[in-house]
Design a protein around this nucleic acid. Structure first.
Lengths: 113, 113
DNA sequence: CCGTATCCGAAGGGATACTG
DNA sequence: CAGTATCCCTTCGGATACGG
């Protein structure tokens, strides 16, 4: 498919950039405050994918990368104002999921009769 | 990555199902009323992909498929109530796109000085 | 700690032709 | 009209090991 810049529909433009489950996971985790690389990995994203997505999100201006010159080195990722503007999308995903994708609660139960 | 059913976060569950640009394009087009297969193709989705996504969306209960026994055969796809519940997500995508992904307007202009 | 490099199999998707 | 089948190339991503 073409680049998002070649598309005029704002829905599709946004989707072409951010409709990716890894990106959404990262944004979700940053919604509660700045996070470090390792912390973001905990969500179950491998370092290669994570690095790649963080680069892209930084390039698009939705997250910031702050490098603290310490030992050991520390890097914090945080939402920018543009990134904050994506939060309504996550809210809508959440609302839908809670209502229409309820948990089956058959996960941890092994002793039910 | 695992199945969306193995995930508890409602944001991620929804994203794992619907964070796909083709799905979003289809939902966008159905938002304005029921559409036929060929009409949906006009958005620039090839028949293989379109068929695949329509099947999945039907299986998940967000669209309905109505077959009219005519000659030539006619099939109409439409949003279900569950599909309508996805509209806030598209609204949020649209709002973001309009504000933060403005058109570069260098596409069709060739005679501006 | 924060990534990057490499390997490699799996999946995705464009084009095209074809069938009920 | 509404899809399905096939081909084949590209991309993606999981795992792992390593470098600054």
């Amino acid at each position: 498919m073409e680049s998002w810049r070649d598309v005029t529909c704002p829905i599709q433009r946004t989707a072409m950039l951010f409709a990716d489950v890894y990106i959404i996971m990262i944004l979700r985790d940053l919604a509660t405050g700045q996070k470090r690389f390792t912390e973001l990995q905990q969500a179950g994203i491998n370092p290669r994918i994570l690095s790649q997505r963080l680069k892209m999100l930084t390039r698009e201006g939705v997250i910031s990368r702050t490098r603290f010159v310490e030992k050991p080195p520390r890097v914090e990722y945080a939402l920018t104002p543009k990134g904050l503007a994506l939060m309504p999308i996550l809210d809508a995903l959440k609302t839908f999921g809670e209502k229409y994708l309820p948990l089956d609660d058959n996960a941890s139960s092994s002793s039910s009769s």
